[in-house]
Structures are given as C-alpha cells and as structure tokens.
C-alpha cells in the first residue's frame, strides 16, 4: 500500500465515521498555581523526594563542594560525564571535580579522544552532572534539553545523576513548561527534551520497586539559592 492509498483510506474512514464522533471526557487534572515562588520551591522539594530523589538545598558554592565530596565518597565515583553549561561554570563545578580527584569528561575533552576510547570512557563514568533547562514544581521534574555539550548520556548512563537547579528555572506546572517552550518558538525545540522525575525505576518483578535497572540508581537534585 503506498502513501496515497494509505492517506485516502484514512480520509474516507474519517469522513465515513463522522456520525459516530465521540468526545471522551478525560479525568480533569487542574493546573497548579502557587501563591508565590517560595511555595513553588517548597512543592518542588516535596515532589522530588516523593519521586524517590534526594533534594539538597544549598546556600553557596562551599555547600556545593561539600555535597560533591560526599556524593563522590558515598557512591565511590571515579569518573564523571559533565555538561558544558553556564550554571555549572557559575558555581565552579569543573574546578571542584579537579580538586576532588575525579576524572571528568565534557564534550570538548571527549572530542580529543579516539571514538572507541571516547565510548568506553562514557560507558565507564559513575557520575553524571547536568544543569537543568527548567524544573517543574508540581511534578518534581528536571527538564534537560540536548545540545552540543549537553549530552543525553550525562543524565542516563552513570549510576548517579546530579542535577544542579537554580530557583529561576522553576515553572509551577507541566502546562507552564509547554507554554514556555512554545513561547521560545517550536522551531527551537531540541532533538531531545527529557523530563526526569526520579531515579530509573521498575516494578516488573512482582510490583517490587527496584531502582537503577537501566538509568541512574541514585538521583540528586541540588538547588542553589544564591549565585
């Protein structure tokens, strides 16, 4: 069956069935409208924890360094995939990793490696560090968009994912995220945009919750309150 026949068949069917047109009524899910930013932040905090993540409110760069040190220690991390992102630069993440003795790989460093070497290094990384393009208070989600220097792998391959979020990135509701994206222009959509809400989970074995079956086993969200 070729394209024209295919579409003609659908066209005829859509017209023929018009008399049976139905309007299913989905369960209503309202839009979350917080009173102020503080309330939205509190909700985000709560939802990240509900989703099985660890939430770390941080006041400054020093606190971030402490968090990194403790994560690296707790999860025995030796190498990291790191995004190239202004927020990570602002908070001095790259320098901290050097000080803490972690081998880290961003797009630039990866490009200097031979393809097989590069792939092996990516697969071997224990820690993935990303910023967030948005965060959703209502669901506790972190939104990551793919770009050069913002690899999909960073939030996916390692056993531990740390997302660094600033208060300005928070939008109240899922509807607000889509409105913001539309405002940016739909032709600006990245090739991959992922909403992350928790560590990788499965309940496939007798409905028992197991994390880390494919993606990160541990999901950390660091909220840095002052730049």
């Amino acid at each position: 069956m070729n394209r024209e026949q295919f579409l003609a068949q659908v066209r005829t069917a859509a017209a023929a069935g018009r008399m049976y047109r139905v309007h299913p009524r989905p369960h209503a899910h309202g839009k979350y409208e917080p009173a102020d930013e503080a309330e939205a932040q509190a909700r985000f905090h709560r939802e990240v924890v509900n989703a099985g993540g660890a939430f770390h409110p941080l006041d400054d760069g020093l606190a971030l360094r402490e968090l990194l040190a403790s994560l690296i220690d707790r999860h025995a991390c030796r190498s990291a995939i790191v995004w190239r992102h202004p927020a990570l630069e602002r908070h001095g993440v790259y320098g901290m990793l050097d000080q803490l003795g972690v081998t880290w790989l961003d797009a630039e460093r990866a490009e200097r490696l031979a393809p097989t070497e590069r792939r092996a290094a990516w697969l071997a990384a224990d820690l993935g560090i990303t910023a967030a393009d948005f965060a959703i208070a209502e669901t506790g989600s972190v939104v990551v968009q793919s770009r050069r220097g913002q690899e999909r792998m960073a939030s996916l391959l390692p056993k531990v994912h740390l997302a660094i979020v600033e208060p300005a990135m928070i939008v109240p509701d899922l509807f607000d995220l889509f409105a913001r994206l539309e405002l940016h222009g739909l032709d600006q959509l990245p090739s991959n945009l992922t909403l992350i809400t928790g560590p990788s989970k499965t309940g496939d074995l007798e409905l028992r919750l197991v994390t880390g079956v494919h993606g990160p086993k541990a999901w950390h969200v660091a909220m840095i309150n002052t730049p």
């Binding site: 939802e47 509900n50 989703a51 959703i136 209502e138 669901t139 506790g140 989600s141 899922l174 959509l189 990245p190 090739s191 991959n192 945009l193 992922t194 909403l195 992350i196 809400t197 928790g198 560590p199 990788s200 989970k201 993606g215």
Partner: peptide, 12 residues
C-alpha cells in the same frame, strides 16, 4: 505517578 520517570520528546 504525577509523571513517569522519563518523558522524552524526540524531535528528529
């Protein structure tokens, strides 16, 4: 869940 863990929008 309020959202599944991963919701990916793949655009090309």
């Amino acid at each position: 869940q309020t959202l599944s863990v991963y919701t990916s929008l793949v655009t090309g």
